[in-house]
């Protein structure tokens, strides 16, 4: 009986004194946020975190409705959102936390090192189906085209940055994970795929895109074409229009841009925006 009572007491104390942090938004940022939250909760055991990854738009909507503390977003605010924000007298600020950069991978034995965005677009829309159409020196073999499934953020980036909204050829094979892509390309000498830069291993060859090598430096410099920044938004109007220096939101932000938080970004397969201390 005593034990039960004690448990109830501890539980109530947790509910009353425990802090909560609500994070909503991008599906792309979700896997990073998951790791962040896991690590962050080790430092703040009393903290309850709610994490949702339904999409960037949902996250920003939640900021407007004040139903979230933090909004993850794989894009910047749309003009309509900025206008709405001004009208409401709100002030959403972005914190750049990572880059989503995609590598184009092929089998190491394929004699190609560089590919252009236009060629990639032609391959993925089905305009080109054989390797010798890419370069006459390449063998006359069917290009085996792999893509991530439509549910992934990687896929969204690809459609935006390479296909410019065009439709994928139905012949493109959808795979469920980045690992599956790497495995498939490593085994098939005529395959091509794209994957988050952090996932690339020695078993495959990452191509230059428009002559630019897919390296962390080139992504940060902004010269590598298939990349986009990932943001975390907070609403400053909830902190009297000044930067929060204490409280759980402030601690969380400090953590995610810290070397530890940024090495988690790399661990999740993305490109860190700041130093990881490595």
């Amino acid at each position: 009986m005593k034990k039960v009572f004690l448990l109830v007491l501890v539980f109530t104390a947790l509910v009353v004194y425990g802090q909560t942090l609500v994070i909503k938004g991008s599906n792309t940022v979700y896997p990073i946020a998951q790791l962040w939250v896991e690590e962050f909760q080790k430092m703040y055991p009393n903290l309850t975190v709610t994490l949702e990854g339904a999409g960037s738009t949902t996250g920003i909507k939640a900021l407007f409705n004040e139903t979230t503390d933090i909004a993850n977003s794989s894009r910047f605010l749309k003009p309509s959102e900025i206008e709405e924000m001004h009208k409401a007298g709100r002030y959403f600020v972005p914190i750049l936390v990572a880059y989503d950069a995609l590598s184009v991978i092929v089998h190491p034995s394929l004699p190609i090192d560089d590919i252009s965005i236009e060629t990639l677009k032609k391959i993925y829309t089905g305009e080109i189906t054989e390797w010798n159409q890419v370069d006459p020196k390449l063998p006359k073999r069917t290009i085996v085209v792999y893509s991530r499934n439509t549910a992934s953020g990687t896929f969204e980036t690809w459609v935006e940055k390479v296909l410019h909204g065009a439709k994928l050829s139905p012949r493109v094979q959808m795979l469920e994970s980045s690992q599956a892509e790497i495995e498939s390309v490593a085994k098939n000498p005529y395959a091509i795929a794209y994957t988050g830069m952090g996932y690339v291993t020695d078993k495959v060859k990452a191509l230059k895109v428009n002559g630019v090598e897919p390296s962390v430096q080139n992504v940060i410099k902004g010269t590598y074409p298939i990349s986009r920044p990932l943001f975390v938004f907070i609403d400053l109007s909830r902190f009297n229009n000044s930067w929060p220096m204490e409280g759980i939101v402030s601690d969380y932000l400090r953590f995610i841009v810290s070397p530890k938080g940024q090495s988690i970004v790399r661990q999740a397969g993305f490109v860190p925006a700041y130093g990881t201390g490595e």
């Binding site: 339904a54 949902t58 499934n149 439509t150 549910a151 992934s152």
Partner: peptide
């Protein structure tokens, strides 16, 4: 199986 997990409800 592939898409139901991530689709906007």
């Amino acid at each position: 199986g592939s898409e139901i997990g991530e689709v906007a409800v």
